[in-house]
Design a binder for these strands. Structure first.
Lengths: 210, 210
DNA sequence: GATGATACATACATTCTTGTATGTATGCAA
DNA sequence: TTGCATACATACAAGAATGTATGTATCATC
């Protein structure tokens, strides 16, 4: 086989991405060789090295494939219908995000890779960096919403916004982590929502000391 | 150099464990070779293969070194002073665990390895299994406490114990995860306590629908 | 329809890592 | 004090993975 048309080349590229995503998420990044990816895809390493620089670059490409979608799912509803309801906004964001993770196998696979199947070393450096940066962005959003909630009285002024944001963030992340380990155990969408509701309710009730 | 006394041999073994713990937690398990561990410890791979079967066995030994301590920190206070206060018990347990994680570099390093620096593949299989089993145990404890809390009216009967336990567990885990990524950002002990208080307060307030 | 760039496959060299086999000096027991 | 097991170090073999260099058929362009 030799040169394909542009569409065919793009198809092989996507096939490689799909194959890598599947193998990475099921066996781990370091434990998957480029040879295995190529062979599983019915190709050779030549194809991989044509489309990507190395394993790290391949992983980065996996990230870039879903990054836009992930970001959109989180702050897509940032400026909804004019109402000033930061707490509701946070709730909605978390809901959208969970639903997205639960419904998109691609996002689920990538999160599995980044949270459970890679080591954040040189090999995974750039993708890991992007992931951490995305988390920073998400945290900043949550933090801003909580600040606003305190400002307009949705939360008591005694609430420590930073502590509360870290807790909320940890809650969302922890449920995601737990769900990725054992997806059949519960629905991340509904559980995240109920848990967040409880947490926010607790925040507005107890004037969390200090 | 040749044969040492038993104490010296034990010291060597511990040196290897310490070195491996440090390298694993800072560079990742797959990214650290046995040669590097031996060299860093001022020894050779011969020493490693004398004390351990392979890398996987070494990792398992790392787990076993702190497993008892970890377990004790979690359900050590299971039967305290007779009082029937399951919610307070959960609070205390989480508090002890966080404090333990924050104060013991060894436990922190091992959790870093298991949550951030390994891939849960064959190489890390047995240690990973132990870790997951430990999590299962912790979850079961939390679940039991929440059941009891509902039974004695500390929480409204409308609370879904399983959902609530998963949420609480996710909260603890998520904060731990977040803290391991960025330990300088906050104190896991105080933040976990305030977050759990908010969550539990919310649980007892809202009769979480469905 | 000749030509160059494309989209890979193949071949090669090198490095890294593991596992094992063997060497060896010494502590300890009889 | 002899003898054996211990606690490693050293040496060796083999495979796996990577990166690169090269081959090659075909698409697109003129």
């Amino acid at each position: 086989m030799a040169r394909k048309t542009k569409e065919e080349a793009l198809a092989t590229r996507n096939l490689l991405l799909d194959t890598a995503e599947h193998l990475f998420s099921s066996q781990g990044v370091a434990n998957t060789s480029l040879h295995e990816i190529a062979e599983t895809a019915g190709l050779t390493r030549g194809a991989i090295y044509w489309h990507f620089d190395n394993k790290s670059d391949l992983l980065t490409a996996l990230w870039e494939r879903v990054a836009a979608s992930l970001r959109a799912s989180f702050d897509g509803e940032d400026s909804e219908h004019g109402q000033d309801d930061p707490l509701g906004k946070v709730r909605l964001k978390a809901s959208y995000k969970s639903r997205h993770i639960e419904s998109s196998p691609q996002i689920r696979a990538l999160l599995t890779i980044l949270m459970l199947r890679c080591e954040f070393t040189k090999e995974t450096h750039s993708a890991g960096e992007y992931f951490l940066r995305e988390r920073e962005h998400a945290y900043a959003c949550v933090r801003k919403d909580l600040d606003r909630a305190i400002a307009i009285g949705q939360l008591p002024a005694s609430v420590n916004a930073e502590q509360a944001a870290i807790g909320l963030f940890g809650l969302i992340d922890g449920l995601c982590f737990h769900w990725l380990i054992n997806p059949s155990r519960f629905s991340i969408t509904t559980t995240t929502l109920t848990a967040i509701d409880a947490y926010l309710a607790g925040l507005s009730q107890t004037p969390s000391v200090r």
